[in-house]
Design a protein around this nucleic acid. Structure first.
Lengths: 353, 353
DNA sequence: TCCCTTCGGTGAACCGATTCATTGCGCATA
DNA sequence: TATGCGCAATGAATCGGTTCACCGAAGGGA
């Protein structure tokens, strides 16, 4: 049935068989109102007789100058994006905004090799990029910027080079720390990605520095740099190990501020293993209010951020910029979305000794 | 700095400024070993002087005949894919396989309008499609098949038109039903997408028919068609409502077979609301072993299927077919991956009255 | 009868690269 | 000095469409 042996069928072949010019054949597909009913039918018949799959997208895209897709650059390896439950809502937001437009969403895989990863970005057939929570100096980000296409950045300000969507990480973190202080905690450990507040520590995410700073401000007098632990990657296991260590010390902390819910989950695991009761003996606060936070044991007190809204807004802005043909995007757009402390059952006043 | 006013810079302009032919300029980027060191430098300098963003992907793709991406067609609206926790592992599998190849992953949004959705598929710049758990007669699937590109189907056999990756839904469902029978349950309700076993009921997923059939086989004498409820869409809420209704009847079921974990979650919610204790008064079995299954209250007995492996395999096969230039894919490839009943704490023998 | 529209179709230019057969040059060998 | 060889650079052909200025024929009005 399908002539799979034949060479690929071109519009030209269809036109020839229908006895019309390529121009008319093209119209028959793209702007039916411009050709007579008769010609249209002849072309369509010829097409189906030849098994013509319709205009080649690559060619039409070249001519039209639009790729019909936007690229999404992630912080992490692509597989990881679907592992961290906190990322799903963001993706959902992006996806739902995309459904309004005729564009596709191209997920750009990372690679072990920096140069390889940048090449993928350079060669991606897209009209713009969303850069999501990606560290400074990431070669993919540089490659994306170099393309001169509209870009919207999420969660990582990098100056004002591009439109930006994010939250006030510092204020969010501060509210978490103040909550613990308010409960009376004096020895509070911090699970972070970094231990230093040096803003130029290299490939860091600003948000980790910002959150750390927020914790420091919120803890004020209770801030103790020696209780800060770096956990990498952002997964339960490193947090579990760090917490085991913290709880094994002579004078263990009475509370833990985890920079993400994922880290908080690790902390809860460690506490459970050691038979340390949460929140009676140890309070734990996360960040993100990811879907798991409500279902941990006990349910997690955490800082909620509007992930889905971030995704939706970023996609919406980007699509607008693409349609308007803006190079690199209207630079003055910035959105700082609100965070909210969600108090569940993982926090309580410290045990009186 | 960046000459944003200027017209788009073409390779031709770079060549001109460097005083070489376009051919050489192209080589300078694509195959540096073919030009002299000198020419290469001149070209690269000219490029950066002009702010040339590198070869236009659309053009190079046209010439090369490869789009550099594969398309993923989902059962549901795109946003939904990131809502159902059972889909994340599948995506993770696909994504991790993609990291091995230099291809991108194009998520193709669905649309409210059938014709619109099919158009997106027809115009997508991809080298092949993965069709994931999509009903019969879906216009997007037909459009994908019509493109004549390699396709790998997941979870929905549709004859042997394409390579296929799936599980034995019927056997998995049967094992769940037999588990309940083994515990002694006689009145077992079923939460399904469909209530009829008619295989040609229209836009149905084969898997729902298969699972339903598996339940019937496994329940044998305990099968009662009047206890089958259709829940749509696949979300907790419809299942919750159906369960409230079932539990309100004069002789309520002692167990529920839910066709997905997502439906099972709704059933658990309903039971909790009514103060019906699980598993003492009601047993619940899910399907998928999605990430939430281990964290429900109580943890859910369910049928585990290798979602991640399915994703990885589908992507791997597709990429192979694309590289080999196979039309529609090597038709003889089929993988039926194993399922496994995971018994947790949501099932127990029925209460003796 | 003649001119002016209108309608539909034509075909060449163009989108922006890659490729490859051909050409030209310089150097070494006879 | 003539011959041969190899390396680089050239430029035209090509990928597969879309668009638009132009043209011929048919129909209407004076």
């Amino acid at each position: 049935m399908t002539p799979s042996e034949e060479r690929r069928v071109r519009l030209r072949d269809v036109a020839e068989r229908a006895g019309v010019s390529v121009g008319s054949a093209s119209q028959a597909f793209g702007r039916p109102e411009l050709v007579s009913e008769q010609v249209r039918k002849r072309v369509l018949d010829a097409a189906s007789a030849l098994g013509y799959p319709g205009p080649d997208p690559a060619a039409r895209r070249l001519r039209l100058g639009r790729a019909g897709a936007i690229g999404l650059i992630f912080a992490e390896r692509l597989g990881y994006a679907f592992t961290d439950p906190a990322q799903a809502p963001f993706l959902r937001g992006v996806a739902s905004a995309m459904e309004e437009s005729p564009n596709g969403l191209l997920l750009i895989p990372d690679s072990r090799y920096r140069e390889e990863a940048a090449r993928t970005v350079r060669e991606a057939a897209v009209d713009g990029f969303i850069v999501y929570s990606t560290p400074q100096n990431d070669p993919r980000v540089e490659a994306a910027l170099a393309r001169g296409l509209p870009v919207v950045t999420v969660d990582q300000p990098r100056g004002a080079e591009t439109p930006f969507v994010g939250i006030d990480d510092r204020a969010g973190a501060r509210s978490a720390a103040e909550h613990l202080r308010g409960l009376g905690h004096q020895r509070v450990a911090v699970l972070s990605f970094v231990t230093s507040l040096d803003p130029h520590g290299g490939l860091e995410l600003d948000l980790s520095v910002e959150r750390l700073e927020g914790y420091r401000e919120g803890l004020a007098g209770a801030w103790d740099p020696s209780l800060v632990r770096a956990c990498r990657p952002n997964a339960p296991e490193p947090a579990r190990e760090a917490t085991l260590e913290l709880l094994g010390e002579r004078e263990p902390p009475t509370a833990i501020l985890a920079m993400t819910d994922t880290l908080a989950v690790g902390a809860l695991q460690a506490a459970a293993e050691l038979g340390v009761s949460v929140p009676a003996e140890l309070s734990v606060v996360g960040f993100d209010d990811s879907p798991v936070a409500a279902h941990t044991t006990p349910p997690l007190t955490t800082v909620a951020q509007p992930q889905e809204e971030k995704g939706r807004l970023a996609a919406q802005w980007l699509v607008e910029d693409v349609e308007r043909g803006v190079g690199l995007g209207a630079k003055d757009r910035r959105a700082i979305l609100p965070t909210e402390l969600v108090v569940r059952e993982s926090t309580a006043p410290p045990a009186v000794p």
